[in-house]
């Protein structure tokens, strides 16, 4: 390996300027992306006293006290639990109802299918701010206010259309002959769908689940409007702390870091599908 490198060196030198400019752009961009995140991490590992008294690029006095505060105080960690509960409920609901619908859109044409598909898209694009007040009243009147299911249902507004669009994008890649062969072999629709079709698009389902999870996780406006105590999401817990005391920067930063963790953990597995997911199954 080292031999090959030394021999290649002169040739590499000539191609150097172009490669370098790309690498420089990329490095600058990544530094720009990571610097604010690093700063948050940095703050979360400092004591409040250090944050406010000295300005340092790295924690001089490394402490995990901020994380301990969050993980031992139930009003903090319940925020994460609440968020996770409604996010998971939402993901399950979205995938379950979206699977058959996406199959119908990808395989059959029926009356009004194009209009229906477009109407779903408009819901993904609808500003949550428009829906905040009516949601609040609707869920209050049916007695679902401040429950996990209310937030999960509200997030279906944009996650179900998203799931249908992404899944449809994956399903159209499966040749129709497979369906027809299965029906000829005497499979019923239900058996074919669960035994043959779903394993075929397993990666698609995984990616869709990831995106439902993510969009439900990052949303704040609706989840904050629909909850007060019992189902209060971590995002709302954080904003309350900012406005109330506005002083506990260390804990705030630690809470922020902990909200980044779930996404960062699974991102590696979906890295090649991220563009497809954000473009609603197209690309």
């Amino acid at each position: 390996m080292t031999d090959a490198l030394t021999i290649k060196a002169p040739a590499g030198a000539r191609a150097l300027p172009r490669i370098n400019s790309s690498a420089i752009v990329m490095t600058i961009y990544l530094v720009f992306l990571l610097l604010p995140i690093y700063w948050l991490l940095n703050m979360s590992l400092k004591t409040n006293q250090e944050i406010l008294s000295t300005f340092s690029l790295w924690p001089r006095d490394l402490t995990f006290a901020n994380y301990m505060t969050i993980l031992t105080d139930s009003s903090w960690y319940m925020g994460y639990v609440n968020s996770l509960i409604y996010v998971v409920i939402n993901t399950v609901i979205s995938i379950t109802v979206a699977l058959p619908a996406a199959y119908a859109f990808s395989r059959y044409s029926f009356m009004g299918d194009k209009h229906l598909f477009f109407w779903l898209l408009t819901n993904r694009m609808a500003p949550p701010a428009v829906f905040a007040l009516p949601f609040f009243q609707l869920y209050s009147s049916v007695g679902l206010f401040d429950t996990h299911i209310a937030v999960a249902l509200a997030h279906c507004l944009f996650n179900v259309p998203l799931a249908v669009w992404i899944l449809e994008g994956f399903m159209r890649g499966v040749p129709k002959e497979i369906d027809e062969t299965a029906y000829l072999d005497g499979y019923s629709f239900g058996r074919f769908f669960t035994r043959i079709f779903m394993p075929l698009i397993a990666s698609g389902i995984g990616v869709t689940a990831f995106f439902c999870f993510m969009f439900s996780w990052v949303e704040l406006l609706l989840s904050r409007t629909l909850t007060s105590v019992n189902a209060k999401p971590i995002a709302a817990t954080m904003t309350r702390t900012v406005s109330a005391s506005g002083l506990d920067w260390g804990v705030l930063a630690a809470a922020g870091v902990l909200t980044i963790v779930p996404g960062a953990l699974v991102i590696y597995f979906v890295r090649n599908y991220i563009a497809k997911g954000f473009a609603l199954g197209r690309v």
Partner: peptide
């Protein structure tokens, strides 16, 4: 690394 900011809850983006 590039996808990282996309997955951060929006209010945490604000906080950052």
């Amino acid at each position: 690394l590039m996808a990282l900011p996309l997955l951060i809850p929006w209010n945490v983006v604000g906080t950052i």
